[in-house]
Design a protein around this nucleic acid. Sequence first.
DNA 1: ATTATTATTTCAAACGTTTACGAAAAAGGA
DNA 2: TCCTTTTTCGTAAACGTTTGAAATAATAAT
Lengths: 332, 332
Amino acid sequence: MPVTIKDIAKVAGVSYATVSRALNDLPEINENTRKRIKEIAKQMGYTPNAVARGLVKKNTNMIALLIPDISNPFYPEVARGVEDFARENGYCVFLCNTNWDEKNEENYLNILKERRVDGIIIAPVSIDTCDYVSKNKDDIPVVYIGNRVDDGNASYVVIDDFKAGYIATEYLLKLGHKNIAFIGGYDRSTSHIDRINGYKHALMENRLEPDINSIKGYSFRKESGYGTFLEMVKNRRVPTAIVAENDIIALGIMEAAEKHGYDVPKDISIIGIDDIEYGSLSKINLTTVAQPKFEIGQKAAGILLDIISGNAEAKQVILEPFLIVRGTCSRI
Amino acid sequence: MPVTIKDIAKVAGVSYATVSRALNDLPEINENTRKRIKEIAKQMGYTPNAVARGLVKKNTNMIALLIPDISNPFYPEVARGVEDFARENGYCVFLCNTNWDEKNEENYLNILKERRVDGIIIAPVSIDTCDYVSKNKDDIPVVYIGNRVDDGNASYVVIDDFKAGYIATEYLLKLGHKNIAFIGGYDRSTSHIDRINGYKHALMENRLEPDINSIKGYSFRKESGYGTFLEMVKNRRVPTAIVAENDIIALGIMEAAEKHGYDVPKDISIIGIDDIEYGSLSKINLTTVAQPKFEIGQKAAGILLDIISGNAEAKQVILEPFLIVRGTCSRI
DNA sequence: ATTATTATTTCAAACGTTTACGAAAAAGGA
DNA sequence: TCCTTTTTCGTAAACGTTTGAAATAATAAT
């Protein structure tokens, strides 16, 4: 049986209200008794019970982070940002891996409501879940990451995905490419749509035709890009350059390309989006459009905590992607 | 104001004890009233309050996962294993990133005690923290991962690190290498010590001298291996093969080697331990000794939940590492 | 019909805090 | 000295559940 505030009160010979006040550094208490009580508490090895406190104060100092796949090296970085900020502000964060499954997302949402988390950060699987979340979140604050949700007063932190797609494509255009394909994933996410639009827009500006190749399913794994590239060679529609929706896919494409005798970047240029860490290994050396992953997590947590504490309203932040030139693209 | 059990009781015209019994499917209740109450609860949009329940039941169905660095691709895999198992059994998991800082570990331990988590899985920064944890965990169950803790009845799940070091070294020996160095990190962890011992043992068996190079600090980043290899070239003590304590370090070594004109594996063979995912990229193709990361997390969670539920005592499991031959080692 | 048994429900305490309100004590002002 | 103000503390209710024990209703047994 852990020692409670009442036990302390008993040995200190005061009411337990006084103990509570002493321990919480409330003003209306004598300095000496506070010292004395704190001393006793320490002696007795007292550990405050956060769940009892949570019950009366109606907050838990817990937030949740819902992400589709912690294995995708993009998410650990944002998780780190979230955890970092949360920890420094006295919050603990639930790691909720949804495995790209909307059912899991919905289940988690309900569980988190039961647990009375103070807020939720979610990288939604699709825009459809955003709907579900917005409708069922009751009054618990939510901030989205990775996907815009323009329902008026939803909070989100994203990068300018249109610009990301645009920058990637524009870079390839500058290198002289005219035959630029896009390989991407699931189409029910704003980041996907925006990146494609950015890609299209850059091509339009140069009066070129887009060539969009969709990955079946939407598990962002290496295999995704791999298979899709294979399709392209089978159909004899291999372009001179490819914009990949993200780095994972880009790596899959690289694998496939090289395994089929295409030299990167001599025969084909490939550019990714995200800037996952191991794209920077010299053997990989992936040219990419970076997004500030850690910052995304950090900012999302910041906004969420501001909303929770009532210090701010919903906020939308759009961060800037930026080009990182490495070795997988070459002049044609 | 969310609807409570009392609100339901009021509209159902029963005591709130009955409501509780109905909602929790306890046996001593009439089937019809149960149906009726459940219906009303749904109508009213009732969400049970887990913190209130936690208070009286003295459990929270929350566990914590403490890891040094979620950026190290090793940990997301084990996190996935933990989360997966926990979720399927009704537990939520706190993600606690300690940033290789023992102070953070200790702080987290205290916070988690306050929050009354039901159990903790920890990949300790060093054996010293194991001590601290064991002493201060009070009666909350802990299972260690990555590090053995032989204090009699501590639970842990690890791989046979000695064997991992041995397998790696033996493989290089079989390829004909006689000059095999070890590059590794922080020496206050059993996995480090065991791997080194495995390495030594394999050499001893062949009457060869160990050559152990220690990384300064213990942040396992690419840079760690990189710098240490540079030292070796500066000191003109470059071996024909290197056992890296883990894959991250191995990649750092590869970077350094190639940047200084050493071809891998022609000039120098490198083998890692862990089998992180991107070691398998064809451009990297890192030969390594694998450990079952997902399974480690899963098993750890399994053991922890067993202990929590009182279904089992402390348990120690040692998983088998296994060699994955790829392209970074060659016959001399 | 009466009693014993069982099924169902209510009462009330408990979990460990916080906090509004009021009381007592101390200090200050006249 | 008496009254007012301030400081310090205690009382008790509240947070939303679960659960043992007692009470009632329903059913079975005689």
